[in-house]
Design a protein around this nucleic acid. Sequence first.
DNA 1: CATTGCTTTTCACAGAATGAAACTATATTG
DNA 2: CAATATAGTTTCATTCTGTGAAAAGCAATG
Lengths: 266, 266
Amino acid sequence: MATTTSPTAGPAEEGPKSSNMRSLSRAMEVFAELQRAERPQRLSDLARNCGMSLPTTLRILRVLQDFGMVSQKDKSYRIGPAVLPAAKSFLENDPLAVAGRPVLQQLATQTGMSVSLHTRLGFERILVARVQGEAPMQYDLPLGKRLPLTRGAAGKILIAGAPDAELEQVVAAAIASGHEDQGFTVQELRSRLPEPGCDYAYSANERVIGVLSVGVALTNREGRANESMALNCPAEATTEEKIKANVPELRRAASRLSELLEGSVY
Amino acid sequence: MATTTSPTAGPAEEGPKSSNMRSLSRAMEVFAELQRAERPQRLSDLARNCGMSLPTTLRILRVLQDFGMVSQKDKSYRIGPAVLPAAKSFLENDPLAVAGRPVLQQLATQTGMSVSLHTRLGFERILVARVQGEAPMQYDLPLGKRLPLTRGAAGKILIAGAPDAELEQVVAAAIASGHEDQGFTVQELRSRLPEPGCDYAYSANERVIGVLSVGVALTNREGRANESMALNCPAEATTEEKIKANVPELRRAASRLSELLEGSVY
DNA sequence: CATTGCTTTTCACAGAATGAAACTATATTG
DNA sequence: CAATATAGTTTCATTCTGTGAAAAGCAATG
């Protein structure tokens, strides 16, 4: 709150401990800021919002522009076209995205519900893959969307066992991104999270009104939950009971995918 | 050939003139290298291919990883999930992509052919938007694909009036990316390009066998051609004459889009 | 258990990144 | 249209960051 920058995905909370590669870190801040602000940004805006001097910001932008990560129109800057090949590369090569799609597909067929696959990034999650079920979701949920960890089964399961210190950062990020309002507390968040010992999360009307969901985490080798898989269904097509009945299937699909990821000889 | 790095999209040809922001430039090199190599890369591979020391490469990777631009699995690195939100941001906010889609849609309806929109990046072009026509293209051409400037109407029109020095770099890039084979010369390229004075390019069986295309450039305020629009059609559904008959429509759509871009008050 | 290859840390140095200030271009206002 | 304010760009001296050599871990392999 006190500081100017709030790196949603950055290392910790803008800690003064950011020792390494200052110029590179700052460049990534600028890049992140350009995404955050959906409108093109002027040099001075970027400099102010990122808390750095005009010359520095300008130099960073020039390099990023050379590589197409940023494009300039007149005096305003925005994200550049080079991100498209990068995203394509990710979607075509990352095991999570690649191995995830068929698993999601099969699960959607089995359950008739929409399935989505998320990965944690900083204190948010990102939609990496999605397959529509029979009852189509009315709201759009496009690839690459940044979503909160505080709402939705797929978000909550990623912070299920987390310590308070971390939850505070999660809450702060959710407020900053507008997914929770100002007064939201860790207390309230805790009350939403699954009971200790429960390996899935449930949500109803939490992120989107009229949608129920259940989510499980992919279990990393070390046990750190970094990805999650969820079933979503419009309220009129299911009930809490019915959607929870699919948790075993979901769990199985998730662990199948986990194994694929671990075993991938890439 | 002599040097280790070949920054496809980088500034010039790995010139020793890269004065500014060395660490940032190098980080972008690493990032580009990760995309080029479709398989995950080990630290030492990256260091070697980018021509930098192991510690430096490691430090760069760590920062990029903090921001999700790179992800690490065991000892190998790949492009990370943060590129997805970035690409989403581009597709939703960049005027070219946003304003382009409806224009392409209308043109596809009018002509019945597939329409594509490209932007130049370095010595390649990138597919930014695409709409399928009646006769569907059998080959896949996904968003973000890197394509050569040496083949296809949409590529050639972007280098129509270029000086030899530039064409040489274009040829070098096309060879490096495997789109042309070793012995390809500027001479040969020149013979494919449109005659001086002609404002559109034509190609048949050039990049993809069995496909004809015509392409025009979007005219920037200063006249620099940085984007192009093309019609593609399978050979069995058209002829050189027929597809060229659509050039006026194509031209009109392109200049309409150009105007939209110039006028955008973003 | 020695050997080899890769990764990571340490450290002293060079030079890259930095911001203040000067300067130029571009908007705003009287 | 002149005057003034604001934003962008360049210059430059200083400082601290980025750098690679070398050494220290670590993991495979024979």
